[in-house]
């Protein structure tokens, strides 16, 4: 009986390593096939619409309310130290460095990443990808690469919008609701934020998260088992894997940047 958990652990490790290997090969294939992307602008526009434009409302509303929440919490904490004028700095730094890219990645994973995985895996289940192969069309070229690129382009843009909306939200709470001085809010925001330390890291994070979510979602969809249970498994595992990977990679980037 003791062997069973050990066996299971062993199988889990083997499967994880195997998956990582396949994932790497898959990623390389997507990168290689991307040289044909210039012919696929039509497809890219469609995917940008689905992944970028349709994610816009949820990202903007979430950004606004996260900013308002940060404004309220930050104010309540700072006022105890008589430092409420630093609200802009506190909200700005946390939004730009961490919350903007991370929360955007989680939201986009939930909204667009899961949709990508579901769409591709149901194309697997209904043999649409085999159909493409029979027409000598590489599914990586026609389906996977445009979706991935659209995700990678959209993520930094959405993250930046999330941050700006968040700053607006905390300005509304701090300055309009709680009566802080608008000038000192902006001044503390501007003086706290440095391009290289904060904005650049923020953009790099968003870009890396975009790559992560894009590849995980397309990989899970592409390798799904060809039936309806496979579709739901691909969707669930996309959300779980991409969210956890986002948080882990976020820590690694923050640690590497040494700020």
């Amino acid at each position: 009986m003791n062997a069973v958990p050990v066996q299971r652990l062993g199988r889990f490790i083997v499967r994880t390593v195997l998956n990582l290997g396949r994932f790497s090969v898959f990623s390389l294939q997507v990168v290689r096939i991307s040289r044909y992307l210039p012919r696929r602008t039509r497809r890219l526009m469609d995917e940008l619409y689905h992944i970028g434009w349709l994610s816009l409302p949820i990202v903007c509303v979430s950004g606004l309310f996260v900013g308002m929440m940060l404004g309220l919490q930050g104010y309540n904490t700072l006022i105890r130290f008589g430092a409420a004028d630093s609200l802009g700095a506190v909200v700005g730094l946390s939004l730009i460095r961490e919350l903007g890219p991370v929360l955007t990645a989680l939201l986009v994973t939930g909204r667009a990443g899961s949709a990508i995985a579901a769409e591709i895996s149901s194309m697997v289940a209904t043999q649409q990808l085999d159909g493409l192969r029979m027409m000598s069309i590489d599914p990586l070229d026609l389906v996977i690469a445009p979706k991935s690129l659209a995700m990678i382009i959209s993520m930094p843009l959405l993250s930046a919008l999330f941050i700006v909306l968040g700053l607006l939200g905390s300005y509304i709470v701090g300055v309009i609701f709680l009566g802080l001085d608008g000038g000192s809010y902006i001044a503390s925001l501007e003086s706290a934020i440095v391009f290289q330390n904060d904005v650049l890291v923020s953009l790099i994070k968003a870009l890396v998260f975009g790559v992560l979510v894009a590849l995980i979602a397309t990989y899970r969809g592409y390798t799904a088992e060809p039936h309806s249970a496979g579709v739901s498994r691909a969707t669930t595992s996309t959300v779980v894997t991409a969210s956890v990977a986002t948080l882990i990679v976020d820590y690694i980037i923050t640690a590497l940047w040494g700020v």
């Binding site: 194309m123 209904t126 043999q127 649409q128 085999d130 159909g131 493409l132 192969r133 029979m134 027409m135 000598s136």
Partner: peptide
């Protein structure tokens, strides 16, 4: 494969 046509079960249309 260009010289082969295939009709899948269920059509497999996009």
């Amino acid at each position: 494969r260009r010289s082969i046509g295939m009709m899948f079960q269920g059509g497999a249309l996009l």
